[in-house]
Nucleic acid binder design. Structure first.
Lengths: 148, 148
DNA sequence: TCCATATTGTTACCATGGTAATAATATGGA
DNA sequence: TCCATATTATTACCATGGTAACAATATGGA
């Protein structure tokens, strides 16, 4: 997360960057605007999921399994890789999804270390229920934002 | 933070949004790209500050006090408001800055509840030391990113 | 004036991200 | 074959965001 309600005036960034020619003020300002807008949107999304006792990461776990072509399940490590999140966080998130009955785990047929995660019927239902509101929230947020 | 290494193909978003005309696929994709890029940049910045035993939020507290026109100090609530961060987090962050000797607190002249936070000489030095690398990091990140 | 209400900063606690270390299992080269 | 090494998932713990509740203090209307 990045917080700074009022971004620095471009004049101020220029004052800082004048000594360092590799950092031009326009680029810095674009980055600060991006981080602030993204943080506000993430905060809104987190609030949306938290209100339903859920979380964005749990939702994204369902998404990456659901959208996998040719397959309907993924191993823990594959989920971590597709989400670019650490494996301990994947463990915790998937366990909460199992507890909620939205996914289930089965063992690999010969590698006993691996766990195959599959979305349950309830998980698919939850995903379909959340998607429209999720997209509507993003769409509504973006409509109130200056174009890039 | 938002994680999803591979964003959904626009075709997939269209599949989801076809039923919900208010959410057009281009807008959604733009939001997902923004959140992913911003999360990657924030992660890089957090790593940069953590490597020096610091944090982005501590840095931003110094920034908002330093850049305040006509004044060289701010009250806790003012810091929280300018950073759009909760007051408990402000308390904790400012306390760590005090412990590090980078800011100091004095009381309001008649309102005994309020605390005035001022940057010390060491704090100004730290700020000047961090700024060039901070801007260079952002600049370098943005140069490897597709334009909006 | 004085008491209900608001405000300031803090504490306590929860959620969710990370890294380091570990146990169980697989693998591959001597 | 078998032992060093790698990989998978997990546990333990840390950092940093949040809200709820609190004590101290200020304020304003009856």
């Amino acid at each position: 997360m990045f917080f700074l309600k009022e971004l620095p005036a471009k004049r101020m960034i220029e004052g800082y960057t004048a000594r360092y020619p590799q950092a031009d003020a326009d680029t810095i300002e674009r980055a600060l605007v991006m981080m602030r807008d993204a943080s506000l949107l993430v905060r809104r999304i987190d609030g949306f999921f938290a209100a339903g006792g859920f979380s964005q990461l749990r939702f994204l776990v369902l998404i990456v399994i659901d959208r996998e072509p040719e397959r309907d399940s993924l191993y823990m490590t594959e989920i971590a890789a597709r989400l670019d999140v650490s494996r301990p966080v994947t463990t915790r998130t998937v366990q909460s999804l199992i507890k909620a009955g939205l996914v289930e785990a089965t063992g690999h047929k010969d590698d006993k270390r691996q766990k195959l995660i599959t979305i349950t019927t309830a998980g698919h239902a939850r995903l379909q229920q959340l998607l429209p509101d999720y997209y509507a929230l993003i769409s509504e947020f973006m409509s109130g934002r200056a174009p890039d």
